[in-house]
Design a protein around this nucleic acid. Structure first.
Length: 586
RNA sequence: CGGGGAGUGGCUCAAUGGUAGAGCGCUCGCUUGGGGUGCGAGAGGUUCCGGGUUCAAUUCCCGGCUCCCCGACCA
């Protein structure tokens, strides 16, 4: 492609509202433009990258036996009601009404549609297993879109769904897909990690996320040298063990005034006690029932863990009304001491059945907590003597200082961008939607499912986030829009142009592509733009080297001048390069 | 959802109660030709929309829309 004819509007400065490095570079290099909050146009250069990633994903999906389909993006409400997700998906689900007032949603994912499709036409175990996938536009009405196409509302995703007759087969295919995802990540050329993940609104038995490692990633990963690795949303921590409390250490319970001071940090400061002596009392509503969660003052609650510990479907932080109704004090002054009794004595109040405590709470001796009285706290609070949770569980968000649940060594933390997510769904959707088949004994069985997503547009941004320098993008060759930047520094006569033209064709003959900067621009402009756009290889043709029958070759990643290539040897040099550009055919 | 900020040429931003300007970009000419060259001449704006105050509003006030930032784990 000749740059003079190509629609790549590069920018010297990034638009003011671009936040992430990758967003700035994508805008500047002319890959994308923004239309509205979280919606982007993909220009020719960006679209090429998107299509290259798509092709890699397609090849790997086909390799493990996937069959490509194409599903509607406008999906009827009825289907979503069958699984109950019309109600639970929340505001992220963009709902649409047609001229007949029928309700639809714009697909954020396609479990309902595909399960419906399969249940209609699959009757026999002989038709299973089945792995279907598609590429398509997805829309999720994010609260706060940011980081360009990394967290956009509209995005391009590959979603795959598998259907199985047996649990064992489902697990086997889960492993196959996991392998395919490994290949995809490797071929796209980024550093990544696979972590155990929270299944979220998709649900299912277990899931893994494929993370592009980057400091600016939105996800925090907890990992251990032993191989354990999990999203902190999910990460377990080694259970705290405490010797039986020595009652003789217990000081008498005492109430002290703390007017207007209620955060752990402030109370700790004013009493001059460490935060790990505090018992935080958190109020939640679990499937409509009030529950209490107790945390050590320096720990953060992980709501996913609480949800799992309670076995509830819906978990929300309790409203201020509920809070004051239970604790009869202002927010910030509640504590577990005597709370249950106090609350239950209220006429008409729902009983406060559940008080769960994080394991670490058991180790707090002479602790501090709210007095259930505005402007007062209790000190020397002791478990067993002053309050008793009905259960202990791992509730806290893994953080520095916590140990690995597998080998008990200290956990390490890093950041990543989630680009792929695999779920072992089980029968969550097939049971709700009655996707059944007949087994060998003519017995109706529910299909076992898995689902597997890859954010194609997000991969593009994530790769840039990981591969850039002060001058621009550094594309890994397999997904670069073009393998080569060809720069011709042309003079009066046509010798340079002719030589460049020949090299341009030779690059194509070697099975690669070049973006030839044939514009009538100064060399500096061309170099700057080439750096910005970040093709992995660069060939410069100018009168200077042409006199010696040579051109210049340089890697985008290299700082120096690169090497001289004899024009006569160029064919063979290019052949070698094209072998490096991993192009696996299927 | 709460709080804050911003909407002026393609981009980054000025300015003003009397209908607007710079740099970059764009067009043309000359110049230059290895890291965004220099000079000159141009094109390009209903100052987000609606209302109010005023002789006069892009500017002040109100409402809306859009975009951005921060928070939403405080118990």
């Amino acid at each position: 492609m000749k740059l003079s004819q190509y629609f790549v509007p590069t920018l010297r400065e990034a638009p003011q509202d671009a936040d992430a490095v990758s967003a700035k570079l994508m805008l500047r290099a002319g890959l994308i433009r923004k239309l509205g909050s979280g919606t982007y146009e993909w220009l020719p250069l960006g679209f090429r990258v998107l299509k290259k990633v798509e092709q890699i994903v397609r090849e790997e999906m086909n390799r493990v036996g996937g069959q490509e389909v194409w599903l509607p993006v406008i999906q009827p409400k009825e289907l979503w009601c069958e699984t109950g997700r019309w109600g639970v998906y929340g505001k992220e689900l963009l709902r649409i009404t047609d001229r007949k007032d029928a309700e639809y949603c714009f697909a954020p994912t396609a479990e309902e549609v595909i399960t419906n499709m399969v249940r209609r036409d699959v009757r026999s175990y002989r038709q299973l297993p089945l792995l279907l996938y598609q590429f398509g536009l997805k829309f999720r009405d994010e609260i706060r879109p940011r980081f360009g196409v990394m967290r956009a509302r509209e995005f391009y995703m590959k979603d795959a769904y598998s259907f199985h007759a047996t649990e064992a087969d489902a697990n086997l295919w889960y492993k196959k897909l996991y392998g395919a995802y490994d290949n995809i990540c490797r071929r796209c050329g980024f550093k990544y990690a696979v972590v155990e993940a929270e299944a979220g609104p998709i649900g299912g038995n277990f899931s893994h996320e494929f993370m592009v490692l980057a400091e600016t990633g939105e996800n925090e990963i907890a990992s251990c040298v032993c191989g354990y690795s999990a999203n902190v949303e999910k990460a377990e921590v080694a259970k705290d063990e405490f010797p039986p409390a020595d009652q003789s250490q217990f000081e008498p319970l005492k109430e002290i005034p703390t007017p207007g001071i209620y955060t752990v940090e402030d109370v700790a400061k004013s009493l001059n006690l460490p935060e790990n002596r505090f018992i935080k009392t958190l109020f939640y509503t679990a499937d409509g029932e009030p529950v209490l969660a107790l945390m050590r003052g320096d720990h953060q609650l992980n709501e996913n863990k609480l949800r799992r510990a309670l076995g509830c479907a819906n978990l929300e932080k309790a409203s201020e009304e509920v809070y004051t109704a239970i604790a009869s004090c202002n927010v910030g002054f509640a504590g577990p001491v005597g709370l249950r009794e106090k609350f239950q004595s209220k006429p008409g109040a729902k009983p406060l059945k559940t008080v769960v405590a994080d394991h670490a709470v058991a180790g707090i001796i002479n602790g501090v907590t709210g007095a259930n009285k505005t402007d007062a706290h209790l000190i020397n609070v002791n478990i067993g003597r002053d309050y008793a949770p009905n259960a202990f569980a791992d509730l806290r968000a893994a953080a520095k200082g916590d140990n690995c649940p597998v080998c008990k060594k200290p956990l390490e933390f890093s950041r990543g961008i989630e680009v792929g997510h695999t779920f072992k769904l089980g029968t969550k959707y097939s049971a709700a939607m009655k996707a059944e088949f007949l087994d060998e004994e003519q017995k109706a069985q529910t299909m076992i499912m898995g689902c597997y997503g890859i954010g194609v547009s997000r991969i593009v941004a994530a790769v840039i986030e990981q591969n850039n320098d002060a001058n621009g993008i550094l594309w890994p060759a397999p997904i670069a829009p073009f393998e080569f930047s060809l720069i011709s520094i042309e003079g009066e006569d046509s010798t340079v142009h002719d030589a460049a033209s020949k090299i341009y064709r030779q690059i194509q003959a070697a099975g690669m592509e070049a973006l030839w900067d044939d514009r009538n621009e100064r060399p500096g402009v061309k170099f700057k733009d080439a750096d910005l756009m970040g093709m992995p290889y660069r060939v410069v043709v100018s009168a200077k080297t042409l006199a010696d029958g040579e051109c210049e070759f340089k890697l985008r990643a290299d700082k120096g001048r690169g090497e001289r290539w004899k024009l006569a040897e160029i064919q063979e040099k290019l052949a070698r390069k094209s072998q490096l550009v991993a192009r696996t055919e299927t």
